[in-house]
Design a protein around this nucleic acid. Structure first.
Length: 805
DNA sequence: AGCACGCCGACT
DNA sequence: GTCGGCGTGCTC
């Protein structure tokens, strides 16, 4: 088939260019360029990178208007036909630019790096210009942002006059790490002959020849050769000269640290419930049918064992497995468990990797060296072909939806990919999202239940402490009498504890007792959080910080007090109450450094501390056998958020953290401190009753016309000027109102709960729809029009947002 | 995103 | 008269 034209998505993320452009393929690229490859094309007045998304043999653009593809960046496609197709549908679905999706499917190392190569052409160019632009060199590569437009104008002028040349350079950002290697000759005759001719005292060379004869035809890196036989560089070079071996470069794959690569660890016997779940999944896998399963299993019921055994079975048939976990649960413990089963066949893709490591893991996957990919959100685009099973652990986690553009939800992408490959997908959770649970109810997903804890361990007893009473008795402490006693008992028995406080920092805000002044940050207008270690007030949204005021800036009073409690303050109080206790604190502030979280958890796991105190991080995916007490210092933080998800999030968090206690022989106990002891999210968590919570919350969602009874679309608008957004949001609101059918509910425009962020003001309109896509046409039109809006207005359309902050 | 085209103010 | 300010529109 003649493939003279290529449809190309260019690397220009704007509304107007969000479609394929047709290019002619020069003769030498025909048959070479394939869909899924990156190419360089002339676009407007410059060269840009683009993705080939299709090849055609005729064009609907007049031939004289067509330009030719300049060159190809790849010899093999970097994206499979599956991912190319996915990019189109996903872009449409989440109102994102297709180029942005295509880029996020690849590791950063494969992103185009645009540079300009400046080259001196006439030696007598004036010195100050040479210093300014070339740093005195003959040739220099610089990014466009290196100089101002005015400087570029001058450079172009100089180029036009022939002083220097400017040539665009587009390259991959990442470099493949190469290492010197040697391929040994396989010509026995030639080698024997060479051996015969050696001088008697050429010991080293004799040694080398013997080695080559033993390992004919194989390739070793230089490092390997030197480790095995201690050949000197000179000896090897002599060998190369004589043709005994050949020097080449091999790709060096950087392996992330922490690899116990011993596959085939002992498998656990499945209990009847696990067995049933396993069989259902395997049945669908063998039948090669698309089937989503909701695996609802209480904490400690052995969901992971079901995942791993189903995965193993699928691997046996030669297919591959994609295993998604929330970033926060991607702990060394978890990876260890997977690697122990699948060893070298595993690739890990997560944000803790360096760019190079990430690229290498991606390439191992792409080349077919691995059969299992474990990773967080972005791993859903792993270049696995021949998929046999997809697993989404903790499917309710909101971190599966990316917080900024493109706002894809990895769980939904996983479902898409499973449908594409006609394979099963397991959505697992102890506390499924209402959306998934209700789909299971309707039979869209097959519902699988695990109701028993592995090894017969019991669910921990949960005590609720009313903090209104505790505070009345002893207003100065965050630790109720009950919790204090239980902590002391654990310390006496040398058992471990986990304490959850869902707020980092020292206290939540600072207020003047006399005039009520609360310091707010100038960018977001939010109350700032106190950080005692650095003696600053910080905004947790934009990172702004300033020193703690000694006197009130508003009234001059010295009576400035701290309200609310963060992890820092709780830690201080803990040390005060239990001076002998060894405490490890984990939150964003203590674990910012790569690997520090892993280290902290490892220390706790080895019993180097009694108490693990932290934010949400302590609730997810950790499994420490010796933890017999879990304390939630304040269960209300997430309950009070202005978001209809608040109860769901609170219930999920409490259930999860409660599950950390008594996972093994030791019996566990949980204490939940709260100002809302009667709230159903808390009482159902106390009873470990997901189904009860589900029924009640569904009734509330039904009454309020919220998901999962309705789909939602959030139209988010922002601008640097408050009255500008307000004005334009009102305009958008009127525009929509005229167009929505009467079964669609429109709320707003209204200021967002966090109305100012990073010097921009936010407004939103919320649409509630029965049919997810019925407004798509208007919404695309709206996004298109907004692009042309003035006064710095930005408009985002967010389908089914998981948070309204 | 760039860059040209095009229409109004302060300068050799 | 012209240089250059940045609003508008297009890129196969």
């Amino acid at each position: 088939m003649a493939t003279r034209y290529a449809q190309i998505i260019v690397d220009v993320p704007t509304m107007q260019t969000n479609r394929p452009y047709t290019y002619a393929l020069p003769a030498d690229l025909q048959g070479q360029v394939q869909p899924g490859m990156r190419v360089i094309v002339p676009f407007g007045h410059r060269q840009v990178m683009g993705f080939v998304v299709a090849l055609t043999d005729k064009s609907d653009v007049a031939a004289e208007e067509l330009k030719e593809v300049t060159t190809s960046l790849d010899l093999e496609p970097v994206l499979s036909p599956e991912l190319v197709q996915l990019s189109a549908e996903l872009a449409e679905d989440i109102f994102a630019f297709r180029i942005t999706i295509l880029q996020s499917m690849l590791p950063n190392s494969l992103k185009a790096d645009y540079q300009q190569r400046l080259k001196l052409e006439k030696a007598d160019l004036s010195d100050d210009i040479r210093v300014e632009y070339l740093e005195g060199q003959q040739e220099r590569d610089v990014k466009l942002s290196k100089f101002t437009p005015k400087q570029w104008r001058q450079l172009k002028q100089l180029a036009a006059e022939g002083w220097l040349s400017i040539e665009p350079i587009i390259a991959n950002r990442g470099r493949i790490k190469k290492q010197r290697a040697y391929q040994l000759s396989a010509d026995s005759e030639f080698l024997e002959e060479a051996a015969g001719q050696l001088r008697a005292n050429a010991k080293q060379q004799k040694h080398l020849l013997d080695f080559i004869l033993e390992n004919q035809g194989q390739t070793f890196t230089k490092k390997e050769l030197q480790e095995m036989a201690d050949f000197s560089t000179a000896t090897l070079q002599a060998g190369v000269k004589k043709g005994w071996l050949q020097a080449t470069d091999v790709e060096l794959l950087r392996r992330p640290a922490g690899t116990a690569i011993e596959s085939g660890q002992q498998w656990h016997q499945l209990n009847p419930e696990q067995e049933a779940a396993y069989e259902a999944v395997i049945g669908a896998a063998h039948a090669q049918t698309y089937q989503p399963f909701l695996l609802e299993g209480i904490t400690g019921s052995g969901k992971t064992e079901v995942y791993l055994q189903a995965a193993a079975e699928v691997l046996k048939s030669g297919k591959t497995v994609l295993f998604l976990v929330p970033e926060i649960a991607l702990t060394p413990q978890m990876l260890e468990r997977v690697r122990a089963r699948f060893g070298n066949k595993t690739a890990v893709l997560h944000s803790g990797l360096s760019e190079g490591e990430r690229y290498d893991e991606w390439r191992r996957t792409e080349r077919g060296d691995v059969q299992v990919v474990v990773g967080a959100r972005s791993a859903v685009f792993a270049p696995l072909t021949n998929l046999g099973l997809i697993i989404v652990d903790e499917e309710h986690e909101t971190s599966y939806q990316q917080a900024d553009n493109p706002r894809y939800n990895a769980r939904d992408v996983a479902l898409w990919r499973a449908a594409y490959h006609d394979i099963p997908v397991i959505l697992g959770s102890a506390t499924p999202s209402l959306e998934s649970r209700s789909r299971a109810q309707k039979g869209v997903y097959q519902h699988l239940m695990l109701t028993k804890r592995a090894g017969g361990a019991e669910l921990p007893k949960v005590e609720i402490v009313d903090m209104k009473e505790s505070m009345a008795d002893q207003p100065d402490t965050n630790f109720s009498t009950s919790l204090r006693n239980k902590i002391q008992a654990r310390l006496d028995r040398k058992e471990q504890m986990v304490l959850l406080l869902n707020r980092r920092g020292y206290s939540s805000f600072v207020m003047c007792r006399d005039c009520g002044f609360v310091p707010r940050d100038p960018n977001c207008n939010l109350a700032m959080t106190l950080h005692m270690d650095t003696h600053t007030l910080k905004c947790h949204y934009c990172g702004y910080q300033e020193p703690i005021p000694q006197i009130c800036p508003a009234c001059g009073s010295k009576r400035i007090r701290y309200y609310g409690t963060g992890t820092q303050k709780a830690e201080a109080e803990l040390m005060d109450l239990f001076p002998s206790a060894r405490v490890i604190r984990i939150d964003q502030d203590t674990t910012r450094k790569k690997g520090s979280l892993a280290k902290a958890l490892q220390r706790f796991g080895q019993g180097e501390a009694d108490i693990l105190l932290g934010t949400q991080m302590v609730a997810k995916g950790l499994d420490f056998p010796d933890v017999t007490l879990v304390g939630v210092l304040n269960a209300d933080t997430s309950l009070g958020l202005p978001d209809f998800h608040a109860a769901e999030r609170t219930f999920q968090l409490l259930t999860q953290v409660a599950g950390r206690a008594g996972r093994h022989e030791a019996k566990g106990e949980v204490v939940i401190q709260t100002f809302n002891p009667e709230h159903y999210a808390i009482t159902y968590a106390q009873k470990h009753d997901y189904e009860g919570f589900y029924r009640q919350e569904m009734a509330i969602r039904h009454a309020g016309q919220y998901p999962p009874y309705f789909y939602t679309v959030q139209i988010q608008m922002s601008a640097p000027e408050e009255n500008q957004v307000a004005l334009q949001a009102a305009q958008v609101g009127r525009w929509l109102k005229k167009r929505i059918p009467n079964n669609v509910i429109q709320l707003g425009p209204s200021p967002q709960p966090i109305a100012k962020l990073k010097n921009r003001y936010y407004f939103q309109i919320l649409l509630k729809l029965k049919d997810d896509h019925e407004m798509d046409g208007f919404l695309h039109e709206l996004a298109d029009r907004a692009q042309k809006a003035k006064n710095g207005l930005q408009l985002n359309v967010i389908r089914n947002p998981l948070s309204f902050m």
